[in-house]
Design a protein around this nucleic acid. Structure first.
Lengths: 205, 205
DNA sequence: TTGAAAAGTGAACAATGTTCATTCTTTTTG
DNA sequence: CAAAAAGAATGAACATTGTTCACTTTTCAA
């Protein structure tokens, strides 16, 4: 029956509409400043309707978390066009950092805020699909680097995690306002300058 | 007059009492689960009293932020007993990571949560004293390493920030539950295993 | 046309940060 | 030493937010 089909599609569309509205508000005024009422108002629906489509705020946060992460992972996946794994690794870092610095609220939701992970716990899902898939992209690349003779004497997983930690750490210090007000000469560029040091080091390994 | 003196001391004591109570609750049930009412209740004072001593919740968060940070910085300062700067640098990383893994709520407040930095903004103080002082400890050590012939071809500030980002990134991924549920063989030890890789790399530079 | 199922609603509740007029306590003063 | 002034503490009350659910409106197959 096509009406039930249409119904299902309409349900999906409203869900999407809510998420789009939430996203807009996140970017405009920050995640912390976005309320369910805000979201409902901005699409001319009632509060209750939002709760028909999402069990709670964390589910909304988790849904956008997944969207953002899928987006970032897409950008990383494209880099598999770069055949040289070392070049690809360097490009991945650059893409990752750009994503973080250009979309701080989105980055926050992907990698910093506890809410999306708490949602996974409440639904008893102990798999973080996007996280796993993305980390695998990194591991695969590092593995290929090792196969090509780099990173001698290193271990795959810990090294991969170290690299992730490196770029994540710099992004999150920046996003968390920990680079301002510290005695740094070029605070606006410190993350990218430091990433150049990273490249410098990687090149030697 | 000694009565005004005593009054001042008593005021300080109550302030300290409030902070101690807040700290206890933070550790017990998490920062997010700690409310002003909780704090007031736990020391048998009224909500209003807390607001006599602190302008708002962010001021409490900032006060503890500073305490925690001073504590961590103290632990780092002690390491200046280690004269060899490379050895000291490695020890600093270890101490930093231990602090983060052993005191996740406290680490959260120092390096991750926005609240303490927001408080600095509201009082129009654009100096992050503890942050600056701690980063200086790191910079000084890295500088001494460079003077001793290490880190050839690198630049002091970006390299120092990269190192900070490295250890911070790993700690905050762990604290933010981003290491669970990713396909890692030893998730419980990944941070320390990765830090060994870090040492491995540092040793070559 | 009609009645049941689906969709949507918003008043109401609970939790929390915050304010402030009031009460209680301490100190100073005449 | 009593009264007044200053200081400290209070908690009721308000605003905001997430959340629930009994109720209304809409949709659509029979």
């Amino acid at each position: 029956m096509s009406s039930t089909e249409r119904k299902a599609r309409e349900k999906e569309e409203l869900k999407t509409l809510i998420l789009k509205a939430a996203h807009k508000l996140f970017v405009e005024k920050g995640i912390g400043q976005t309320t369910i009422r805000n979201i409902a108002d901005s699409i001319d629906y009632s509060i209750g309707t939002v709760y028909v489509y999402f069990r709670d705020k964390n589910e909304i946060l988790h849904a956008l978390h997944t969207q953002y992460f899928t987006d970032l992972r897409g950008q990383l996946k494209v880099l598999f066009n770069v055949k040289d794994p070392m070049e690809r690794l360097k490009a991945m870092g650059k893409v990752y950092i750009n994503y973080g610095l250009d979309n701080p609220e989105m980055y926050d939701l992907i990698f910093i805020l506890k809410a999306p992970m708490e949602f996974l716990e409440t639904i008893q899902k102990d798999e973080w699909d996007e996280g796993k898939a993305s980390f695998d992209l990194l591991k695969t690349t590092v593995k290929q680097c090792m196969d090509a003779g780099h990173f001698k004497g290193h271990t795959l997983e810990p090294l991969s995690f170290l690299i992730w930690g490196c770029v994540h750490g710099m992004c999150s210090l920046e996003i968390g306002s920990r680079t301002k007000n510290v005695n740094i000469k070029n605070p606006e560029n410190i993350v990218r300058d430091a990433y150049d040091e990273f490249l410098n080091i990687i090149n030697k390994l």
